[in-house]
Amino acid sequence: MLKILNKYKWLLLAIFSVVFIISVPSIVPNHYLRIVLGNGLVYVLAVYGLVVMLGMGGQVTFSTAGMMGIGAFLTGIFTVKLGLNSVLALVCSVILTGLFSLFIGAALLKLRGNYFAFASIAFTQVLYMIFRNWKPVTGGPDGISNIPALDLGFIQLNQQTVMEFIYFIFGLALICGLLLYRVRKTSLGRSLESVRDDEIAANSLGVDVYRTKIIAFIIASMLAALAGSLFAFLNGYVSSETFTFEQAGIYLIMAMLGGINSTVGSFIGTITLTILPEVLRDLKDYFRFIYGIVVIITMIFMPMGFAGLVKSLLTKLDHKFKKKKEIVTTGEVDTNGSDS
């Protein structure tokens, strides 16, 4: 089963994409839910950053919210205050955040394990304070509003064109997902895995642990900034309250529930966790409580998240299948008289 899945994964991905594109308008009929879905897709990009940092590199980071905030506020400042072209603003936001994360990463990644996690909490908190209080630049508690549409030339992407916006972000998520898949298969992916599992082994295999972590941090930060920038365009508005420490924790949860080691899993996990509260509105007051409990239960019973569950189910099926086959074929082996 696993093998079959592996063999046809590109076909499956293509089918999934097509089905998604065709069915979204009818599955998500109302405007409000579409905006929620759009935001969910935005979060997917940020969570992909965690797949690199945590899933591949093993580094727990709370910096996602902070970096996303920088991307979002830069976009707000570039478009609203400086009147820059929107695509240019998006590109600049991502690149500047990338540069910034090079310095932050170089400083914070001298720390390891828990220390780094704390430093990333402090980083996100400091940024949050700045976003909330630096009135002339970030608008303080009011944030920045009236962010224009993302102007692609042939189309203006904003809340009015939310369906098109969804397709656009979905396309980006697909591309980023494929890039991550590629990273996983090449030496950067393997180096990151070595950093995650055993830094000493990594060193003795010629992996520059510090540099590799910084590269992962930059990738994660740029993905977060891309998410932040798109968030600004989609909602037309940025505020400090979107980029809190709690939100950083939510991204970690999204990544883990979907499956930290899987690009597809983290996609599904993120979308599910964004849409679910809206679909289960009847639960209203109880939703977040149940959500917390479900997080604990999921970690206990499926620590590798949704993707891990699917994988282990398929593996089990494989084993059963194999056993049956062995029983059938043992006769043959005996007659061959081979001894291996």
Partner: peptide, 14 residues
């Protein structure tokens, strides 16, 4: 010392 959570192939490819 190996990467315990990676495949044998990835381990050797390092």
């Amino acid at each position: 010392r190996f990467l315990d959570r990676s495949s044998i192939e990835d381990n050797l490819k390092l």
